[in-house]
Design a protein around this nucleic acid. Structure first.
Length: 309
DNA sequence: CGGATTTGACCTGCGC
DNA sequence: GCGCAGGTCAAATCCG
């Protein structure tokens, strides 16, 4: 939408590598605090003196956080609180790490992503494509990514979208395989990676890449509340269609929060672990209540480059 | 039967 | 240049 032909889209590989994590910090904590923390963080991100949370986690695949964060990397951190749940079941924590792609890649809607993905795919396969062309086209353009660390028994958390698994790979230095998912919406090129932390098997690292160009499909009611109640967001959040990422993250957080309050239910039924609440009073209310009047969650965890303004 | 998942092969990028 | 690891494809298989 913005500038699909953005020339900057070419030199991203190296940056991508950095973004993948060396400098990504993950924080896990009780989701009950996350909301407030998010809110707080939204307006007081400067109070990030907790960046080095003692419990901070990192990718197990050799992705170690360092103190030096490249300018190209924006890390959203959540202030720590000692209230982290001690119960393994209830200890549903989450950490959000925003890994913006190298160049100001405008994470716009599918219009920008499509060509990207296509080129990637064709480059990978396209048997009819000459090698030279392949090399040119193979310039991989990465989408902005967000990594969530969730303490959960369930690998694949419900997030309102439908995903199709397209691959699974063993990860080095990790006994747990990494699963690759793609949004089932043919027009949507969002990808998602799910893997368990090698350091803490109870932690699921979910990495999202790209932005959905459609609304969620798995939240029949409550959960989607964020989308149903635009007043909770800034107008520009709801803007056009291209993208409900803000909702998405809120939904995710909401689910996490809810999950945290109904752990047993989740433990019993993994398949429906993260379902929407029956009553829209509790969860949604919590979510909406934490929505800041301005940038809100989006403002903090979604880089401007990712917004479809 | 259609859609989702599994899984081995292939491709690419990166470090040595 | 080579090998390794990550990421993706697509045929085979599974499942509702």
């Amino acid at each position: 939408m913005n500038d699909p032909e953005n020339p900057d889209l070419t030199n991203h590989d190296s940056s991508w590598t950095q973004l993948t994590a060396p400098d990504s910090h993950f924080f896990h904590r009780d989701t009950s605090d996350i909301f407030s923390d998010f809110v707080g963080n939204l307006h007081a991100s400067s109070q990030s003196d907790h960046h080095h949370h003692p419990h901070s986690l990192r990718f197990g695949t050799g992705l170690t956080p360092t103190s030096g964060v490249p300018s190209s990397v924006t890390t959203t951190t959540l202030p720590s609180t000692p209230s982290s749940s001690s119960s393994p079941a209830a200890a549903l924590s989450v950490a959000v790490t925003e890994v913006s792609t190298s160049n100001d890649l405008p994470a716009t809607s599918s219009s920008t992503e499509d060509p990207t993905e296509n080129s990637t795919a064709s480059a990978a396969k396209a048997p009819e494509t000459p090698k030279n062309e392949k090399k040119k086209a193979q310039k991989r353009i990465r989408q902005p990514r967000f990594a969530f660390m969730t303490k959960s028994d369930v690998d694949h958390l419900e997030d309102g979208y439908r995903w199709r698994k397209y691959g699974q790979k063993a990860v080095k230095n990790s006994p747990f395989p990494r699963s690759y998912f793609r949004c089932t919406n043919s027009r949507c090129t969002v990808k998602k990676r799910v893997e368990r932390s090698s350091e803490d098997p109870s932690i699921v690292i979910t990495t999202y890449e790209g932005q959905h160009c459609h609304q969620t499909t798995g939240f029949p009611r409550g959960g989607i509340l964020t989308a149903h109640d635009p007043s909770n967001f800034t107008s520009h959040h709801l803007l056009p269609p291209p993208l409900p990422d803000p909702y998405y993250y809120q939904e995710l957080l909401y689910q996490l929060h809810r999950d945290n309050t109904s752990t047993y239910q989740k433990k019993r039924d993994n398949t429906s672990s993260l379902r929407l609440p029956q009553s829209t009073t509790e969860g949604p209310a919590a979510v909406s209540s934490i929505n800041p009047p301005e940038e809100g969650l989006l403002g903090d965890i979604v880089p401007q480059t990712m917004r479809n303004t």
